[in-house]
Write a protein that binds this DNA or RNA. Structure first.
Length: 849
RNA sequence: GCGGGCGUGGCGAAAUCGGUAGACGCAACGGACUUAAAAUCCGUAGGGCCGCAAGGCCUGUGGGGGUUCAAGUCCCCCCGCCCGCACCA
């Protein structure tokens, strides 16, 4: 196949040219409007995966398209380079985290460059570099000054064998993943950021994020979890202890039949220590699943303390006090009152323990209800609340409590402050010094950065920084006496909470970024990434933007104006005859269409479900293999076609083949017809050529709006249609000008998706400027309006014929034409026409009776 | 359990201010080229039925009801699948 398109060589050639000409380099000095496209930066695991390919292909389409549309486009890339995998590699393979990380970055950079992305590599950011993290140490100290950072005691998962804190995902069935030792809950002093200070703002500003997926906005809303309610105090009957409770349903107080608190409530121990079954109950609570789903579906159970509390409004009435497994110490006050008639959990609990159930809310229309009834209504059996609506009764109950001085209306959030201390080596050191005389002392600015030492070992349990012979020993900046450094490092979400701002000024040695540059580029106009970051990363970044603004770094209300979350990449799974998972590249279809082993065609293979690509199921495709054999354009095109980007995509070899075939066809279309394309037209253009021209203009207009709406699959389909039409077109001597225009429109429309081949063919047609720097075609609006339209003719709603008539033709004309259609006449034979409905340019419907 | 989403040919999907369902592609089948294959090109195609054919009839967007001249699209009920959930007061 000598005339076959040589991908490797050609793609490589154009990447080199883009690189040499510095095509994707941008500055703030431009009179074009700015556009900031950002894909979530990768963790440098060593190799890119298909999720990356999808993410960056999407971003690159947006970046190249916006560039063509005349924007000054910032499209940067970097590395989220701190994190646990580097330490695991150190422990498992003896590699140093730093060396391992930098080697991975080098390898992945090569792969990413092979994708032909329009990135400004001059802005590459690596978060594990002291040049980067020194700025966030400064930010932390600024937060500290503003009271946005503080220390508090927090519960952690502690592995007693490794002497280390475990992340939640490192706890498997209550045991450490590596040691298998039962995990202890331990209290540690931890640095925290006061994200709760912005709870209200983070919540209300969600409304301004109108270019975010609704799904993500709802998740953030739920995460912040605002609720209004009443906080009040129960007196324990005949005792001095008091119990604070929080409720969102103060209106149901007269239906209260018990009070309950968390097993680890401080009062629980005071009241129940030594009681029969208490320890066992606490253990049972700790052993139960901690997820919301688990709690919701778990059986409700409790422990009767034997004490009672006094009802605040009903003199002489007492309520039994329980410990209950569905009460959480972290939320509200860790204690509630139960109203079984109007709460599902309370109902289950009361039924189980034979507690009274008093209905206090009834539907406004007086209809019968089955309990528990959680809808709104009017109050009954509730003394001074009787007859009030639920909302009014809530307000009345709160007012009454406040006037009695026993409680008050409060706003509660589920959001908790962000604990940022990690007992790990491969993270940014927290710039704090502990002095016996002066206490907690911030590291002075002129001593930043506090750098990670390189000479550490991973042969013993615990944090290497803690064991390092000299690193943590220093002197107190205040008194000069011997002191020790904080050995904890930042949560790695810290780095990713401001990297988007660093890209605007990546080489600034003095400060994280200059305010003017951040103001110019931010907010990110289009952020693209996986939905798995819908809450934490995005919320932390929103918080940082606020906190940094308060500290004078920037003045941007929100970091990401537009957000797009892509779907996952799935692939069929395969198992061999022994039930072991097989890689797709190790299987094939034999002559009769059965799956067999590539290495042994007699050995059958079972093909299973299409599932998310995962290492454990081995249903992964290595992008490197695809890039090497099919090239970047084919990989990009396939991953963009077929499925809408927010949906899961099934990766198939045949689909990829289809993209590959298209690229080769496009290549043949241009090279085989090159002379014809470049021949100057003689005489008038034919009607067919004008139709082709119109199609080209219409296509490009729609491709533009498709890309802006992230309908990449539709954009690809339309461009294929245009290409099909061009292929089928035989230009006459007067047509070559319009023929050329159509071919070039196709290349220009396809360029954001398949930049290499289109650049090659553009040059082939004699252009000396780069397609990557060519603006989007000017669309002639006259071509966007059709002069005729083909509409359906229905009889009683069923299609019988189609008619073609001028656009905006009068209804009478459409009716006349429809009724004169031979098919329609035949279908109407012997039937009485009752009515003819004509919707201009849409439909004619003949109603017969 | 709560919250969100989805369900259209053999497959991925188009079409949603209600107005010709299945664009585009994959797989399949038939044909051309070839000694043969690959590649490429041309053609067929939701399902069922009638017809030599041209063509025609019926049916069809998870299931059941409803609104409408007209429903994939709007309303009600049901079924199935997927995602999120910090131990929600």
């Amino acid at each position: 196949m000598a005339d076959r398109y040589n991908i490797r060589e050609t793609e490589e050639k154009w990447r080199k040219i883009w690189d040499e000409k510095n095509v994707f380099h941008v500055t703030e000095t431009s009179d074009k409007p700015k556009y900031y496209v950002l894909e979530m930066f990768p963790y440098p695991s060593g190799r890119i995966h298909m999720g990356h390919v999808r993410n960056y292909s999407l971003g690159d389409v947006v970046a190249r398209y916006r560039t063509a549309k005349g924007y000054n486009v910032l499209h940067p890339m970097g590395w989220d380079a701190f994190g646990l995998p580097a330490e695991n590699a150190a422990i498992e393979r003896g590699a140093h985290p730093k060396d391992w990380t930098y080697e991975n970055i080098a390898a992945m950079r090569v792969q990413m460059k092979q994708m032909g992305l329009s990135l400004d590599w001059g802005r590459e950011v690596t978060t594990c570099a002291p040049d980067y993290y020194k700025h966030e140490q400064k930010m932390f100290l600024d937060f500290l000054k503003k009271g946005l950072a503080y220390r508090r005691e927090m519960m952690v998962n502690w592995d007693p064998v490794d002497n280390t804190v475990l992340a939640n995902e490192q706890v498997i069935d209550g045991k450490g993943w590596r040691t298998g030792a039962p995990v202890e809950r331990r209290k540690l002093n931890q640095w925290s950021l006061k994200i709760t200070a912005y709870a209200e703002d983070l919540l209300s500003a969600i409304q301004t994020l109108d270019r975010w997926p609704e799904k993500v906005r709802i998740m953030q809303d739920n995460w912040i979890g605002k609720s209004q309610g009443l906080r009040f105090t129960f007196d324990l009957t005949g005792r001095s202890e008091k119990l604070d409770v929080f409720t969102t349903r103060p209106d149901t107080l007269f239906g209260a039949s018990f009070a309950a608190m968390a097993a680890d409530h401080p009062l629980a121990k005071d009241l129940c220590a030594g009681k029969d079954g208490f320890d066992e109950f606490v253990k049972k609570c700790q052993a139960q699943g901690t997820s919301e789903a688990a709690i919701e579906q778990a059986d409700k159970f409790g422990f009767d303390t034997g004490f009672t509390v006094d009802h605040p409004f009903i003199a002489g009435k007492t309520l039994p006090l329980y410990l209950a497994n569905f009460i959480l110490m972290d939320y509200g006050t860790g204690a509630i009152f139960g109203c079984p008639a109007h709460d599902q959990r309370d109902f289950e609990f009361a039924t189980k323990y034979g507690l009274e159930i008093t209905q206090v809310v009834a539907p406004a229309d007086g209809s019968e209800v089955t309990l528990p009834y959680t809808d709104t209504g009017v109050l009954i059996h509730s003394d001074f609340l009787n007859g009030q609506s639920v909302d009014a009764a809530k307000a009345t109950a709160i007012a009454k409590m406040e006037s009695l001085g026993r409680g008050q209306g409060v706003t509660q959030y589920r959001l908790r402050d962000w604990g940022i201390s990690r007992q790990r080596y491969w993270g940014c050191p927290i710039p704090i010094i502990y002095c016996e005389s002066c206490g907690v002392v911030p590291v002075p600015d002129n001593q930043l950065p506090v750098e990670l030492p390189y000479d550490v070992t991973f042969d013993a349990p615990g944090n290497p920084l803690e064991r390092h012979p000299t690193w943590k020993h220093t002197t107190c900046p205040h008194c000069g006496k011997a002191a020790t450094r904080e050995t904890d490092t930042f949560d790695t979400f810290f780095e990713s909470s401001w990297y988007f701002a660093r890209y605007t000024d990546p080489n600034n040695a003095k400060i994280g970024f200059a305010k003017e540059k951040a103001s110019y580029w931010l907010p990110v106009d289009q952020y693209i990434g996986g939905v798995e970051h819908a809450v934490l990363h995005l919320l932390y970044s929103r918080f940082f933007t606020r906190a940094l603004s308060e500290c004078g770094y920037m003045d941007t209300p929100e970091p990401f104006a537009g957000l797009y979350t892509q779907g996952m990449i799935n692939h069929m799974t395969y198992k061999d005859k022994d039930g072991k998972w097989l890689y797709p590249k190790d299987v094939m279809k034999d002559a009769s269409g059965n799956w067999v082993l590539l290495a042994d065609p007699h050995s059958p293979v079972t093909a299973g479900r299409v599932e998310k690509m995962s290492k454990s199921k081995r249903n992964t495709i290595d992008p490197q293999d695809i890039l090497d054999t099919y090239g970047a354009d084919a990989a990009r095109m396939f991953i963009l076609s077929d499925s809408p980007p927010d949906r899961d995509l099934e990766w198939t070899e045949s689909g990829l083949d289809g993209a590959w075939r298209f690229i080769n066809r496009l290549h043949r279309l241009v090279t085989d017809n090159k002379n014809l394309i470049l021949t100057a037209p003689v005489g008038e253009a034919s009607e067919a050529a004008q139709k082709l021209q119109q199609k080209a203009h219409q296509t490009l207009a729609k491709v533009g709006s498709d890309i802006e709406a992230f309908h990449m699959n539709k954009a690809v389909a339309r461009l294929r249609e245009l290409t099909n039409m061009i292929e089928a077109f035989q230009p006459a001597s007067g047509d070559t000008g319009l023929y050329r225009e159509a071919v070039e429109f196709a290349l220009r429309g396809l360029n954001p998706m398949i930049p290499h081949i289109t650049e090659e063919l553009w040059a082939e047609l004699g252009h000396t400027t780069l397609l990557a720097q060519t603006s989007w075609p000017r669309i002639n609006p006259a071509f966007l309006v059709e002069d005729s339209v083909t509409i359906g003719v229905q009889i009683n709603g069923k299609l019988k014929a189609t008619i073609t008539l001028p656009i905006d033709a009068p209804a009478a004309e459409a009716e006349k034409l429809a009724l004169s259609d031979s098919g329609v006449i035949r279908a109407l034979e012997g039937k009485a026409v009752r009515k003819v409905i004509v919707v201009p340019n849409r439909i004619v419907n003949v109603v017969v009776g």
